[in-house]
Write a protein that binds this DNA or RNA. Structure first.
Length: 276
DNA sequence: CGCCAGGACGCCC
DNA sequence: GGGCGTCATGGC
């Protein structure tokens, strides 16, 4: 990644990033595509810091109205610009299926999201579809002035008072997660630094957090790249291409490989629904 | 009407 | 330990 400051903007060059692939692949739910002069423009936020970012051409980006300080302290980390995805994809591509997935969706990066927002978002995601997940999170943030609520704010709610979300049976899960995090019973910062199996167990103490949601929180909200969410699509990938297990050389970054494979199997594979 | 959506829970055996 | 019905909501 290279960057320079131009007026109020930061201009970024990074060949291994595609904005639409990264911001709209189901790892984050609060980025919105907006009309603009550029090829693609998205607005969103991280830790209450808003951002409008455009892709001018492949590998070329404008971070609008962004100071160098904000870019370096917030967005460089959020977009994981310090990781060499070219090198990662080289390693992955030893495997023929991963090679195809990387070639197909090579602009995906693993965003370093906030663990609390991720926890609530993926609790909401269970047995749900992406447009509706986005709608529920929209209503949630709208209710708190456009910002994602803090654990303390949500801890004061109960499932009935959350009825405006129309989140169904998930409301009680949201309340339990908020209560635990606000009270300190669940320490997300400590979990993020714990051995992975200990971290999994701690997350699954929360009502409504099972294996899949725990892996998503570890991967997307704690940047534990060895976490490996297995949804129905990835189970198909495993049965079809990796019956003997996932390649060992990719296991340290299995979660990132999973992102490429997930996108590939859903939209780019010649066999979108292989027999399980 | 049915089925499905980046699942988890409670109960059964 | 695996199998199955149930849990809200909305789109198709």
């Amino acid at each position: 990644m290279e960057y320079f400051v131009k007026g109020n903007d930061v201009i970024v060059s990074e060949p291994h990033l595609d904005l639409a692939e990264t911001l709209d692949c189901g790892q984050a739910f609060r980025w919105r595509a907006v009309e603009s002069f550029y090829a693609q423009t998205f607005t969103g936020s991280f830790l209450d810091a808003p951002l409008t970012v455009s892709q001018m051409s492949p590998g070329s980006f404008i971070f609008h109205s962004t100071s160098e300080e904000a870019f370096l302290s917030l967005w460089r980390d959020y977009f994981d610009f310090s990781t060499d995805y070219g090198r990662l994809k080289e390693v992955f591509s030893q495997d023929p299926t991963l090679a195809k997935a990387c070639a197909y969706a090579g602009g995906i990066r693993l965003l370093r999201q906030d663990s609390w927002e991720c926890l609530i978002s993926f609790i909401i995601s269970q047995n749900n579809n992406i447009p509706r997940i986005k709608g529920i999170i929209d209503r949630l943030c709208q209710h708190y002035g456009g910002k994602f609520p803090t654990p303390e704010q949500l801890a004061g709610e109960d499932p009935d008072s959350l009825s405006y979300l129309r989140s169904g049976f998930r409301a009680k899960y949201i309340c339990d997660a908020a209560r635990r995090v606000a009270s300190g019973e669940t320490d997300l910062k400590a979990i993020a630094e714990s051995p992975i199996d200990q971290a999994r167990a701690a997350l699954k103490e929360i009502l409504g957090v099972g294996p899949k949601v725990a892996e998503c929180v570890l991967l997307f909200g704690m940047h534990r790249t060895e976490a490996f969410p297995l949804d129905v699509w990835m189970k198909r990938v495993m049965a079809e291409y990796y019956p003997g297990g996932f390649p060992e050389f990719a296991q340290q970054n299995a979660g990132i490989a999973q992102q490429y494979l997930f996108h590939y199997i859903r939209t780019g594979s010649p066999v979108p629904e292989p027999a399980v």
